[in-house]
Structures are given as C-alpha cells and as structure tokens.
Amino acid sequence: MSAEERKHEFVDSIRREQVFRTLETGVRLDGRKMDEYRKIKIEVGPIVKADGSALVQIGNTKALVGVKVLVGTPFPDTPDEGILTVNADILPIASPYEEPGPPDESTIELSRVVDRGIRESHMVDMESLVLEKGKKVYSVFVDVTVLDVDGNLFDAVSYAAVVALATTKYRKATLKGDQVVFSEKRVPLKPKTIPSSVTTAKIGRALVVDPDWVEEAVMDARLTLTFNSNNELCAMQKGGTFGFTPEEILKQMEVARAKAKENRAILKEAIEGAKKK
C-alpha cells in the first residue's frame, strides 16, 4: 500500500523560507544557478570483479553500479532478446531514513525509472545477446548500490548504470549441448546510444535542475527526463505530491534537453577515458 514516507530530514520553517526566498532572487541556497548541476564525478571500473562498474557522485550523492553478464533463459514473449535487469538498493548507511529490508516503493521507482531510461533509449542491443533463440540468452544484471543520499538519486544512478554498461566487457559464452561454457575472451557490450537523464524540480515558482536533499524536501514536484544521443526524449517520469502546468513542462523539457547534452559529454568523456587505459 503506497503512502507518504519521509525520506529526508525535517525541514524547519525558517530553512524552508530561506530556500524559497533565495530562489526568488534567482540563485539557490548553495549558490548554484537554476540550471546548474553540482559537480559530477565519475570513476570507471572500481570493482574489478564486476564485468563493468562505475561510481558516480553528484555533490555528496554517491551511487555505485556493478554489471554482471550471465546466461539465462529468455522471457517467453521475447525469445530473440537478451535480458536486462536493473535493481537498486539504497543501503541503510546511505541515509538515517533507510532501513534494512526489501526495497520500498521509492527504491522500486528508482530502479524502474533508470531501467526505462536505458531500455527505451535502446542503449543495449538486446538482439545481439542471444545465444540460442528461445533457449539461452545473455542476462545483464545492473545492480545499483546507493552509498550516500544528498538528492537526485535518479540521475546519479542513471549515470552510474550507463557508464558501467558502456564499459562492460563480458566473457563470451558458447553452448556445448546444454552446457554453457565461458571463454576467457571478453567482448565489449557496445552501446548503441548514450542515454542522459536530467531531473528537474519545481519549488514554489522556481524550476531547478539537480535538486539536492533540502530542495527535494521542500519541492512540489519532480520530473525526470531521459534523452538518447539524438537528444530525443525517450523516457519521462513525474514524481512528487504536486503538479506542473503545461507551460512548465514544456519549459523544463527544453532546459533538460540542453542539460542532457552537456551531461552526456561528461559521461562520454569518462567512457572514452576508460577505453584508453
């Protein structure tokens, strides 16, 4: 049963006022401009036991993604496609408001929105992941571990997942009868496009990108937009307990489209940098 759950510190009325008043002057509490991201730091391949991995920090928010490519049975309705699974876990150490246990609705939403951004951009060539149609396919697990929460998990997790996937090198498998044999030879999971996610938030009358935790605590609503390499919208999700006017949606769409391009350049730089090593 879905119900509101506070996942951030209690914001007192003075600080709330402060956020709103500062925004009215055209800047944000931490001095950023409305369309400015915090510093995005990307470390590629920190986990050598994974087939691909990335640690992404946006401000203090830290998300680590490890990709494992296994072999499994395809879904009956897509016998000629591989399997892609995104699964997020926000660790209890990441926030005083997280408890151990099965993922709650916001964690499930996080997984599914990131999954949709990757899937709908067709970043992963699912048809290239088939070993034997209807029988055996590669199964790509994208496991997300959120280590520290300071707002905008959606983008941090998405960037980490995209960079980890784009730098994944998996062991090639062959079928000998019913047996799956992995060779030592690794092949790259060539990305068809680099999806770039941009999260915007509405706080009073202000529209900002990359909300931090305090901004998320006082925001009216959130909109996460993912664009493919042609900068076409490929997935979108509104969240939060208030709404947007149609004009606000159209405005955010264009702000996000421009930001997505900038941030994609950062992702590409990290991916290219890793290839050179």
Binding site: R116, R119, E120, S121, L223, N228, N230, E232, L233, C234, A235, M236, Q237, K238, F242, G243, F244, T245, P246, E248, I249, M253, E254, R257
Partner: peptide, 15 residues
C-alpha cells in the same frame, strides 16, 4: 487548475 499531476513516457519522441 491546469496542473499536470502524472506524466510518464517510454520510447523516443522528437520535440
């Protein structure tokens, strides 16, 4: 009130 309260999408769309 002219307020959007749910918005999702999947699949590529130009502007």
């Amino acid at each position: 009130l002219n307020l959007i309260t749910l918005l999702q999408s999947d699949g590529a769309l130009t502007k």
